[in-house]
Nucleic acid binder design. Structure first.
Lengths: 331, 331
DNA sequence: ACCGGTTGCGCAATCGGTTGTGCAACCGGT
DNA sequence: ACCGGTTGCACAACCGATTGCGCAACCGGT
């Protein structure tokens, strides 16, 4: 627990560092921030003093002077859905590595109040990570206008985005089911205000239509165990022999309830579920998918940084539209 | 999408507000921050102008001038455990209501590097919410020394804290099991670096000793479904007729695996689990507990605010030690 | 009309870094 | 020895909001 030396009991400022190093404040600032602008030996001297004093630049002062806050906001529609926390974690990790602070905002961008809240926030941050915003295109676009923004799990023309390609993964699973002889597939979806939900639906539908299989869609349902237990009877009796649930807890509820009703998995009903759970269940014959939320958040943060740091002299880079492939494990 | 008027294309500053309201900058500042200090009609005039311009005070400038950042950090050991995200959500909610920004930091305060990282951060925030820190008392105490801090799910002399009283809830469940005739109880615990884990263990042990029942403790285990499936066989064969798992996903893994082995719940093995899941499972004969993470986070934020706002002239209030009771539903 | 006390407001300093501008020293080449 | 060009650094002006201090106007009471 080595508390760094304190200079006069106060927390040391750049002035203190400069005085002890025998240089001016401006030189000290450059030595720490842009060492190329000072003599090498001056740089090391200043840095040594700063280190010894335990100098930490005051973020507020720095933000005021440079016009940048060093804070980025990650906006999630909710934290109750287990899908989002890993995204926050991944973003936080990467932000910390870059010396950025991350502020978490729970906001679905659905109401005008939501949009207004984000507008107010925009003056206080350098950029946004908008995770699965649920509002209209116009609402989302408006929120991307103030500061650099990267969409996660949603795409919009002209806005950089990073999405987990669960649609393709779902399609792969659906195709696998069809190839194994399943002629009727059930898809259990979430809120239709989710862009990904529609995409996944369309991807699976494309497969079933192409193969003349039957698709029964359930939803919208919350991503909970309870929702799974409630929808399971309908899934069991709809005639489908394979089911694709959109969320892990939901799938678990379905699996559990089907099992309790004596429906054997995967013999009577094939199911797909998140990889770690599939392994734990011991259903080796189960296709599983593996979304890496932390990677999603981290990658989005990377993209945001390139958009934050490009100076406005050069034309901005074309907005990146990344689609992270989602591994599918087929038995 | 009403983007507020912009004054000269720039984002409006207090100067702009003051000029348009026909007052000085200082009066404008007071009108917005401490209306009691100006004439009532001046206050409304300034506020109207500010509203019309869409003025949002620059946080960095404000922070620099007042020496407070308006940012509080909520520190969690991980976001992978579903227990923590609701705490963050609850804290964020309350923080937003108070005009505070919340920054999320993933840090278990276990290593000296962890402690150092928090020390560096301490200059940039007004306070800390330390959630279930896993380090030693000394490490945690050190981290509470810089800025007002509130512990969540951990207690330490002299430091305010808010804990969910799961220990008592667990004891109540254990007592219920004993009263129902169970003479051998299994407790499945998590990491022993968790203060709560030890408390729960002790509480349950007190009940079994008092009633001369047998207690078998398993762990430490991660709070995952997979861990539940792995430990379930051992639980089934240890002789216990009732099991208390410390985490929802873990309990679900146990329940699932026991069921798959033909062990009837709760006839062959009684289990307790989080309320919503118990309901979904339809096990009405199952005792269930109900931890409200959002309330935990919100309450901690309230406590932190009282410690942040008390001026240092008066002696600080004795540190609050709140224990939020955890509802137990017995069949 | 005078006076102590209150009220409302403006002036200017301040918080702690950042950065444009300009000065001085020093370089090698003639 | 002189000179254009570089290099290294200091000075001081910011960024935008907060706040101590002081001035002026105005109050009712004598």
């Amino acid at each position: 627990m080595t508390v760094p030396d304190r200079y006069g009991g106060r927390v040391p400022t750049l002035d203190d560092v400069a005085r002890l190093a025998g240089v001016s404040k401006s030189t000290a600032s450059r030595a720490l921030g842009r060492p190329a602008l000072v003599a090498p030996e001056t740089a090391v001297r200043v840095r040594e003093v700063a280190e010894r004093l335990g100098f930490v630049p005051n973020r507020a002062a720095s933000a005021l002077a440079r016009g940048r806050t060093g804070v980025v906001a990650v906006v999630v529609p909710t934290l109750e859905n287990a899908f989002f926390p890993p995204i926050v974690g991944g973003a936080q990790q990467r932000a910390a590595d870059c010396g950025l602070q991350l502020t978490v905002v729970v906001n679905g961008l659905e109401t005008d109040a939501d949009v207004a809240a984000l507008a107010r926030l925009s003056a206080q941050v350098d950029g946004f990570l908008l995770t699965a915003p649920r509002g209209s295109d116009a609402q989302v676009a408006a929120s991307c206008g103030y500061k650099p923004a990267v969409l996660i799990d949603r795409e919009l023309p002209g806005v950089p985005s990073v999405v987990a390609d669960t649609a393709t993964a779902f399609a792969t699973v659906a195709r696998h089911f069809v190839e194994r002889g399943h002629r009727h597939i059930a898809l259990v979806g979430g809120t239709d205000r989710s862009w990904q939900n529609g995409r996944r639906m369309a991807a699976v539908r494309a497969v079933t239509e192409e193969t003349s299989a039957v698709l029964t869609a359930f939803g919208p349902l919350p991503p909970t165990f309870g929702a799974g237990t409630r929808i399971a009877p309908a899934v069991a009796t709809c005639g489908a022999t394979a089911v694709i649930p959109y969320a892990t807890a939901l799938g678990l509820g379905i699996v559990f309830t089907l099992g309790a009703r004596g429906i054997r998995i995967p013999d009577d009903m094939a199911v797909t579920i998140e990889r770690p759970v599939a392994e734990a269940l011991g259903f080796s014959a189960m296709p599983s998918i593996d979304v890496d939320g932390a990677q999603l958040g981290g990658t989005a943060m990377d993209v945001l940084r390139t958009h934050m740091t490009t100076d406005r002299a050069v034309p901005p880079p074309p907005p990146a539209r990344l689609r992270l492939s989602v591994p599918v494990v087929l038995p």
